[in-house]
Simulated assay, not measured.
Amino acid sequence: MTAAAPLAPPARAGGSLFASVTAVTGRNLRKIQRTPQIVIMATVQSIAFLLIFRYVFGGAIPTGGLSYVDYMVPGLLTVALLFSGMGAAVAVADDLTHGVFDRLRSLPIPRSAVVIARVLADTALITWCLILTTAVAFAIGFRIHGGAGDALAAFGLCVLFGFAFIWVFVTLGLYAGNAQAAQGLGFLVLPLSFASSAYVPVATMPGWLQGFAAHQPVTVMINTIRCLTQGSQAEALLGHSTGYYLLRALLWSAGIIAVFAPLAFARYRRR
């Protein structure tokens, strides 16, 4: 009788995408929790900019009928998301340098789960910073002149916009060779934050800059948040309705994710 061939060992079952994303996101959040300076620095930086523009520059910048604090806070909150999110590029590059991604790649989980988990963890971080910065904004005089639903929509849009740009920063971190290079690449968003309506009306800028400043994604998002929080006063100042800006803000967010998410996945698979 012919001896039966030995059975091959059963293949190790891989985790589902949802379970894998949940587990790796938890790992990233625990790392952030055990490194409190990450949260502290991101929050302090946002609050410092808020206080500087409120009390140092606020009295010198005309805003066409809106009080400067009500004009400035939607811009500062949006820009703060970019500055807080820049840490994602550094964190990704640091994980690559220390072999964390190599260890995760060796596990039986979908590769996309590692990238998605990184994005979700950093989105949670910027959301926490946004909550704290918003609380300080109310303490220094910011007020909402629209409805409660509009205010919640504004907060949700801020989180969505931050989520979109986290994909940008994660992609930059994957392409950077180390944490220092990733930090440098992250500062490429600075022109978007300063050449926007965050601090001053676009109409006060040189004519050659106004076209770019008025239509780039940061300005569109800021103007949407202004209209949602300040109501008809902001619409009259900006010259368009809330719906006009809201549609463009959603399109920009979707476009950024559609471009940079595939880039991040492709780069991670090639590392």
Score class of each variant (00 low, 15 high):
F187K: 03
H98N: 08
S106W: 10
T229N: 09
V73M: 04
P36F: 02
L247G: 13
C129E: 14
L130T: 13
P191L: 09
L81H: 07
G239K: 08
A176D: 03
I109N: 05
V159R: 08
Y245S: 07
I126Q: 11
V24A: 01
R12W: 03
G149T: 12
A113M: 01
A203K: 13
F155W: 11
A154P: 05
V90D: 00
P74G: 09
R34Q: 14
A179N: 06
L185E: 02
W208V: 12
A11R: 13
A154F: 05
A182N: 10
G239E: 14
P36T: 02
Y244D: 10
A113F: 10
G87V: 00
S253A: 15
Q45G: 00
G231S: 11
P217H: 14
R270M: 09
H98F: 12
A164S: 14
E235R: 01
G87L: 00
P217R: 04
W128G: 13
P110G: 15
Q45F: 00
A181I: 04
A48K: 00
V200Q: 07
A154E: 10
W128H: 07
R226F: 11
T224R: 05
F165H: 13
A60T: 07
P108S: 06
Q233E: 15
L160A: 14
I61G: 11
D95Y: 02
V259C: 02
R267F: 02
A213P: 06
A139S: 14
G156V: 04
R226M: 12
L125I: 13
V90G: 00
F83T: 10
P206S: 05
P62K: 08
G141C: 01
S197A: 15
A91N: 06
G64L: 02
I257P: 14
L190G: 02
A261H: 07
S253P: 04
A249L: 05
V200W: 01
H215M: 02
V90E: 06
S67Q: 09
V39S: 03
S16E: 01
V114A: 09
W167I: 05
I140S: 13
S67F: 11
L157G: 10
